[in-house]
Amino acid sequence: MQIFVKTLTGKTITLEVEPSDTIENVKAKIQDKEGIPPDQQRLIFAGKQLEDGRTLSDYNIQKDSTLHLVLR
């Protein structure tokens, strides 16, 4: 499925993911596309910070959802 990741600069990254993918996995995909190390990434969805060990389906993230990427 496709999800979107919006950065603070207003750029939107499109990712191909599975509901069973972990947040860690998603961060690795963002690193592949953007070169941002996962340890600098914070992903936010519906006002919640997403934890590495959980999956997209744990957070009820569905296709065409938009996550927000904050760098630390």
Rank of each mutant, 00 (worst) to 15 (best):
K29E: 11
Q41N: 06
G35V: 03
A46H: 15
F4M: 15
L50P: 01
V70G: 08
T12E: 09
L56S: 01
I30N: 01
K33H: 13
N60M: 09
P38Y: 06
Q2R: 06
K33N: 14
K11F: 14
D32P: 04
D39N: 12
H68G: 04
K27F: 06
I36P: 07
F4W: 08
I61E: 00
K11S: 05
L69G: 01
L71K: 12
G10K: 03
V70M: 09
D21A: 09
G35E: 07
S65Y: 08
L43Q: 00
Q41Y: 10
T7W: 15
K29A: 14
T22I: 03
N25E: 12
E16W: 11
Y59M: 11
D32M: 08
K33A: 11
S65D: 13
R42I: 14
L8D: 11
V70E: 06
E16P: 08
L69N: 01
N25Y: 14
Y59H: 03
L43H: 01
P38N: 13
E34K: 02
P37H: 12
G10V: 04
G35N: 03
L67M: 09
L71Y: 07
I3D: 00
D58P: 01
S20F: 10
T66P: 02
D58V: 07
L69S: 02
Q41V: 03
I23F: 02
D39R: 13
I3M: 08
T55L: 10
F4N: 13
G10L: 05
L67A: 01
G53V: 15
T9W: 03
N60Q: 06
E18D: 12
D32V: 11
V17G: 02
D32F: 04
V70H: 05
V26M: 06
S20W: 15
Q40T: 08
E51Y: 03
L69Q: 02
T9R: 07
N60S: 14
T14V: 15
M1G: 07
T7V: 10
Q41R: 02
L67V: 11
D52N: 14
F45V: 09
V26F: 02
G53A: 08
Q41S: 09
K29L: 11
F45T: 03
F4A: 04
K29R: 09
Y59A: 03
P37E: 11
T9S: 14
S57G: 14
G47W: 07
L50K: 00
D64H: 05
L67I: 06
K6Y: 10
P19N: 06
I61V: 07
T9Q: 13
S65E: 05
R54H: 15
Q62T: 09
V26E: 00
T9M: 15
F45Y: 14
Q40I: 05
V70F: 05
V17N: 02
T14N: 05
I13M: 06
G35W: 05
P19R: 04
I13E: 02
L69E: 01
L67T: 01
K27H: 02
L67P: 01
T22Y: 11
E24S: 09
E51A: 05
Q31E: 14
S57T: 10
T14S: 06
D52G: 04
T9F: 03
G53N: 08
A46D: 03
E18P: 07
M1W: 10
L56M: 15
D39P: 15
K27Y: 04
I61L: 04
S57V: 13
K6P: 01
S57F: 10
G53W: 06
Q31N: 12
P38V: 11
R42F: 13
H68Y: 02
L71N: 04
N60P: 08
L8G: 06
K33R: 07
Q31R: 10
Q31A: 14
H68E: 04
T66F: 07
E34L: 12
R72M: 10
K33F: 05
G47V: 03
I36N: 11
F45H: 08
V70D: 06
V70A: 13
V70K: 03
T12S: 13
Q49K: 07
S57D: 06
Q49L: 15
F45S: 05
Q31H: 11
I30P: 00
S57P: 07
L69D: 01
E34T: 04
D64R: 05
T9H: 09
Q40A: 12
I23M: 06
K48W: 15
V17A: 14
V5M: 03
L50W: 01
L67H: 01
I23R: 01
G10F: 08
L43I: 12
G53R: 04
H68F: 07
G47Y: 14
P37G: 09
T14A: 14
S57M: 14
L15K: 00
P38W: 07
L56R: 00
S20H: 12
E16I: 13
K48N: 12
D21Q: 09
F45K: 02
G35L: 08
Q40H: 07
T7P: 11
I23Y: 02
G35K: 09
E16R: 12
T55I: 13
M1Q: 07
I61Q: 00
D58K: 04
Q62G: 06
T22F: 07
F4S: 14
I3V: 08
T12F: 09
L8N: 11
G53Y: 07
Y59R: 01
N25K: 06
A28N: 10
L43D: 00
F4Y: 07
D58Y: 09
K27V: 03
D64N: 12
E24G: 14
T22N: 09
Q31D: 09
F45A: 08
Q31W: 05
K48T: 07
D58I: 03
Q31V: 05
A46E: 15
S57A: 09
I36F: 06
N60V: 11
D21I: 10
E24F: 14
L69M: 04
Q41D: 01
P37L: 15
K63G: 12
K33D: 06
D39F: 13
D21M: 05
P19A: 05
T55R: 15
D64T: 15
T9G: 13
E18V: 08
D58L: 05
Q62Y: 13
I13N: 02
T7R: 07
L50Y: 01
G10Q: 08
F45N: 08
L15H: 01
K48E: 11
F4P: 02
A28P: 02
T55V: 14
E16V: 04
G35D: 10
L69W: 02
L67F: 04
I36G: 02
I23D: 01
I3L: 06
K48Y: 14
L15T: 02
N25I: 13
L71D: 14
I44M: 06
R54D: 07
I36A: 09
I3H: 00
T66G: 03
T55W: 05
A46Q: 11
K29D: 12
I44V: 12
D39S: 05
V70T: 07
F4R: 10
Q41T: 04
K48Q: 10
K33M: 13
K27M: 05
N25T: 13
N60W: 09
Q41G: 06
L43R: 00
D52K: 04
E16T: 10
L43V: 09
K6S: 12
G10R: 04
Q62R: 07
K27N: 02
D32N: 11
T22S: 07
S20T: 14
E51P: 02
E24H: 08
P37S: 13
D52R: 03
R54W: 02
E16K: 13
V5K: 00
T66N: 07
V17M: 12
Q2K: 13
K63P: 11
A46P: 01
